[in-house]
Design a protein around this nucleic acid. Structure first.
Lengths: 188, 188
DNA sequence: CGAACTGTTGAGCGGACTCAAGGTAGGTGG
DNA sequence: CCACCTACCTTGAGTCCGCTCAACAGTTCG
């Protein structure tokens, strides 16, 4: 990603769309589909976006002469797996408010990594896309935003976001009594 | 995996355990952690299990002489990503009954791949592990099993499962009015 | 202006969680 | 062998979060 933003999504068996990721500048997407020369995910830009294509064939060829490249590729794939599993944990064990807070903080952190403001930013995605990604409905997303604003955690105006009390959001995520759903098997 | 079964899980920020996968004979696990020489996931056997270790360093070295190996590694990593994203879709867009049905059918299919019975099998994991993996509570898992049994979709006796009406389970997953949560953005 | 889309808010309902009680199986010690 | 303990599983009753349905406001565009 050079600039702009992209969402990736796949269509499940019954034609329903499932958003699988949002990508911001500096990030790479499209790691699926290397298995079968065929991408499970589609991707669309959510705003004016410029990207840099990396032809996999050439990358592969290059890696025969520079072995460190394939090592790096594998690292990136592995990172993708880890971030997917974070999302799994988020979806499996957290409430609607926690999920939205997580997403906002994730975006904030990723913007900071690009030396952009981590407290004031514009969400590239619609409420519908957020809700789909986080496994909830549009209404719940909207209500969660309103709730956060009432609580003075942030200010929201359409897609413009200003994070006011990041610690409060942080704490919300890692909160007690928050749908623990913990497996209770003793160790082996 | 040679024989037996393993679960992988990670510990989130607040010490809660999140099961990220179940592994059956013929499968490979541990693809995370290649990024940082450090595994995000832990893994424990759920029963007597024998596995075959693949030292990554040796694999890496071997791939310098046999390039097709790294291609294969990348394929497997990519598959892992795809299966993780299936789980994401499952968690994001499906009801409790649908999630359990999906898991049962997935196990059934994977057993079939190993030429084992796909209709009668023993679940290696506890109800608690299932509930954690699927993002629900133990009680809900238990009730879902009872429900399926009442509906004559399967027979369940502790961990022994007999699938009677697989098509019904299939249809349950890909059902109408099933929590669509569909993003409604027009195409680009 | 009207149509279409996105986002917000309210009322009501239902599925899944919580709390709590009982049942079953395996392990240990008297 | 039986009493006891400790998981693990099941079932019930009640509550609450988040979904559904619906109305309305703000934007964009023809």
């Amino acid at each position: 990603m050079r600039s702009g933003s992209v969402k990736s999504y796949c269509i499940d068996n019954e034609g329903r769309e499932q958003v699988t990721g949002f990508y911001l500048p500096g990030e790479i997407f499209g790691w699926d589909g290397l298995a079968e020369n065929y991408h499970q995910n589609a991707a669309v830009a959510m705003e004016t976006t410029s990207i840099c294509e990396i032809p996999y064939g050439q990358l592969e060829q290059l890696s025969t002469t520079i072995p460190s490249i394939q090592k790096h590729v594998i690292k990136l794939l592995s990172k993708e797996i880890n971030s997917d599993q974070k999302l799994i944990a988020l979806l499996a064990g957290n409430s609607a408010h926690q999920r939205l807070a997580s997403l906002l903080l994730s975006i904030s952190a990723r913007l900071a990594q690009q030396k952009l403001s981590s407290t004031r930013f514009r969400l590239p995605m619609s409420r519908g896309e957020i809700s789909n990604y986080l496994g909830m409905t549009v209404e719940t997303v909207s209500r969660a935003f309103s709730h956060f604003q009432r609580k003075k955690y942030l200010k929201v105006n359409k897609k413009e976001i200003e994070l006011i009390d990041k610690p409060a959001l942080q704490q919300l995520i890692s909160n007690p009594e928050a749908r623990s759903i913990t497996s209770q098997r003793s160790g082996y």
